[in-house]
Amino acid sequence: MKHTLLITAGILALATATHGQQAMTHTQHGELRTVVNPAASLMAQGGEVSMIGRRQWVGVEGAPTVFWGSGHVGFGSLGATAGLNIRHESLAVEKLTEAGAFFAKSVRISETEYVGLSLNAGISYLDGRFSQLDPMDPAFREDVRETDALVGFGVMLYRPERYYVGLSLPRLMLGSLGVDSDSRYDFRNVYHLTAGALFPLGTDFHLRPSLLVTYAENLRPQAEASALVFIKEVFGIGVNVRSYGELAGMAQFNFGGFGLGYSYQFNPGSEPLNRRISNTTHEIGLRYRFGGTNNLL
């Protein structure tokens, strides 16, 4: 196990040194938006619970694994929502856990358009068990356990069931979590730009394109676009393309307020790092909207 973790840690160190660690984002951002921008909760005023699991480099011990969870309730008379977001990442011998609460409020600016604003606050906890790699080797540091507070905000312009454009800073770090410890999780402040729309294609088909751009102070910008075609609002199939060359096939099922999504991501390129390890990534998302509604956007 230690040998495998050492190899994984070495690969991660090489990736960080040569390219910069990519931000871990999910391909189903057009379906599960609140974990990226809490202001998107205003588009589901009835309330919603969602979760996503993402496993990268399948078959490699210690490979990146991410879990997102979100839930909120709506206050229709106020045009507001309140909820919780959680996030847990594991990468070799490091684990990052974040949890926070958010409040969002919408303001009507025209007959059909709204602007939503959100504020969130929470904590981050970094747990690095570096002594598990090789406690006798002075090249490896002692274990790192750090806690930090975080705050964030989001803004979104949207028209229900038609389109949305949002900007969020869900992680404005108030301290130096991971910065002073040379952690692979030295993400610092992370910014997200999101956009999406829904277009009817006749009576039985809909097209839902979406865009996500992620930027952090010490990482390369990452852009990705998705497009799904839905049949009778029940089954959708599509693709996701990322700026680093990754492709993903996606499927979505909607039934009785539930939404179940799956994506299979891979990199068809031939970069040396991608040839040494499996770049296969599986992702599963589950959402439930209260009231039995299953709007596509």
Score class of each variant (00 low, 15 high):
4 T>A: 14
7 I>Y: 14
15 A>W: 09
22 Q>V: 05
23 A>H: 08
25 T>L: 02
25 T>E: 05
26 H>G: 10
29 H>Q: 11
37 N>M: 01
41 S>N: 02
41 S>P: 03
50 S>A: 15
52 I>R: 06
53 G>I: 12
54 R>F: 07
54 R>K: 12
56 Q>E: 15
59 G>T: 11
61 E>K: 14
62 G>R: 02
63 A>K: 02
68 W>M: 08
76 G>D: 14
78 L>D: 05
83 G>Y: 00
83 G>W: 00
85 N>P: 02
89 E>L: 10
89 E>V: 05
89 E>P: 03
89 E>I: 06
89 E>N: 11
89 E>R: 03
92 A>W: 00
95 K>T: 12
96 L>R: 03
106 S>H: 04
109 I>S: 05
110 S>Y: 03
111 E>M: 12
112 T>I: 12
114 Y>E: 06
115 V>I: 15
115 V>K: 01
118 S>E: 00
118 S>R: 00
120 N>E: 06
122 G>D: 04
126 L>W: 11
128 G>E: 14
128 G>Q: 14
129 R>E: 15
130 F>I: 11
131 S>V: 10
131 S>I: 09
132 Q>C: 10
136 M>C: 07
147 T>H: 11
150 L>W: 04
150 L>A: 08
157 L>C: 12
159 R>Q: 15
159 R>M: 10
161 E>I: 07
164 Y>C: 02
165 V>Y: 06
168 S>F: 01
173 M>W: 13
178 G>L: 09
180 D>W: 08
181 S>W: 04
182 D>P: 02
189 N>Q: 09
192 H>Y: 15
192 H>I: 05
196 G>Q: 04
199 F>G: 05
201 L>V: 10
204 D>N: 12
204 D>I: 09
205 F>P: 00
208 R>E: 06
215 Y>C: 06
216 A>G: 13
219 L>Y: 08
226 S>Q: 11
227 A>Y: 04
231 I>E: 14
232 K>P: 00
235 F>E: 04
236 G>R: 01
237 I>R: 09
243 S>L: 04
245 G>A: 07
247 L>P: 00
252 Q>S: 15
254 N>H: 13
255 F>N: 14
255 F>W: 12
256 G>H: 08
259 G>K: 03
259 G>I: 00
262 Y>K: 03
269 G>W: 05
274 N>Q: 11
275 R>H: 10
277 I>L: 15
278 S>K: 02
281 T>R: 05
282 H>Y: 06
290 F>R: 01
293 T>R: 14
295 N>T: 11
